[in-house]
Amino acid sequence: MGKFNHQKENLYMKKIGILFLGLMSAFSFSQNTRFVYQVSMKTDSTAAPKIENAYLDISTEKSIFYGEKRMKRDSTIRQAMETRNFNFDRNSMEQFRTAITYSIEKNHATKTISYKDRIARDQYWYDEDRTFTWKILPETVKIGEYETQKAETTFAGRKWFAWFTQDLPFIDGPYKFSGLPGLIVKVEDEKGDYSFDLKETKKIAELPNFESRFGNNIKVKRSEFLKQQEKFNKDPMSFFQNQGGGGFGAPAPPQSRDNSNEADRRKRMEERLKEEAKANNNPLEKN
């Protein structure tokens, strides 16, 4: 009888141990988690791909995807504003120039995907009006420490292949990608122009806030955002001079006391912005 009770006690303790581990795992994943992706972007079809890191920060309520360089740039500017020290080397800001100017927020409750990007001084944002239709394939492969399964979809004029893992219980992924039964560890388009590869995972205290401190935050439909973006690419300075263009913007920048220097600065800026727009001939979203 004592042996039987001892066996029951051991079984009970095992069940408690399994329950404890399950609760600890759930608690661990309930904390804010940062997934670091290496992003390869062939934005210019005639040039080599650009390589940058980006973060997918996930909490219980939402996730935010954004570029590492943008976070560092915003942190530098915020510190300068708080200390009122505007004498920092502005040339050093060139190291924060990024191809990932946008941020993408996914609301877990409403399943809404919001895209935010700056046009001139204003931050525009829209809710994505397209959905992902995934086809899960039988192919599996181990990527790093994770067992993954392949899936495919078409989105924004490209065919995409993704590898997701159920080892990480997040129905999420980099950029706008989501909807698979596990975190997307890797996703790339059929031509290899764009890819997102998970490199690191860490816990963080809180998610960043990307509310603009300059200009306005303007919500539009996706079609309107694309129209404004096209207008900016054709005549960027009009957005600074005419309160953001078409009534959508912040006041124009103040005039310099040296009008000749100011004119030269504006001309150089306009040339640079037009050159950047011209070089972006292979965007991630083709349509």
Rank of each mutant, 00 (worst) to 15 (best):
F232T: 01
F86I: 03
S256L: 06
M41G: 04
L207D: 03
S40Y: 03
N5E: 13
Q229K: 15
R121E: 14
G215A: 06
F164H: 02
H108I: 00
I51W: 11
D235R: 05
S59C: 08
F20T: 12
T154N: 15
N242F: 10
G247K: 06
K274E: 15
K116Q: 05
A26I: 00
A151G: 08
K135E: 13
D129F: 13
K3W: 10
F196P: 01
R121Y: 05
D122Q: 02
Q79L: 14
V187W: 02
E52W: 01
G17W: 07
K106N: 10
L198Y: 02
M13K: 12
R84W: 07
S92F: 04
N233H: 09
F164S: 07
V187L: 06
P169V: 00
T154Y: 09
A80P: 00
K219P: 00
T131M: 09
R213C: 03
K62S: 11
T43C: 10
T33S: 10
Y12G: 00
G157K: 12
D172C: 05
T140Y: 11
N87Y: 13
R70I: 07
N281P: 10
E230W: 14
K231L: 08
N216I: 03
K176D: 00
F20K: 13
A54E: 03
D258F: 09
N233T: 12
R70L: 10
G244M: 05
S114G: 02
W160Y: 09
G247Q: 06
L207W: 05
F88R: 09
R266N: 12
K69A: 01
V141Y: 13
I77S: 04
A252G: 15
A156W: 08
L273G: 13
E152W: 06
S30E: 06
W125M: 08
M81R: 14
K15R: 14
Q38Y: 02
K234Q: 15
K186F: 11
F196E: 00
D117W: 04
R130G: 02
L19C: 12
E52L: 03
G179R: 00
G246N: 09
K42N: 12
A162G: 04
G245Q: 04
Y12E: 13
F88C: 01
K69T: 03
R272F: 13
G179I: 00
F232C: 01
K186L: 08
V39A: 05
E128N: 06
E275K: 14
K219G: 02
D172L: 00
E52H: 04
R265F: 14
G22D: 05
F177Y: 01
G249R: 01
N233G: 14
R213K: 15
Y194A: 05
N280S: 11
A263L: 10
R118N: 08
F27R: 10
T153E: 02
F214G: 04
A205M: 11
A54Q: 01
D167E: 13
L23S: 11
I119H: 01
K234H: 11
F225V: 04
A250S: 08
E275Y: 11
N282G: 12
T140G: 01
Q31W: 11
K14L: 11
R272Y: 14
G182N: 07
T133P: 00
V39H: 00
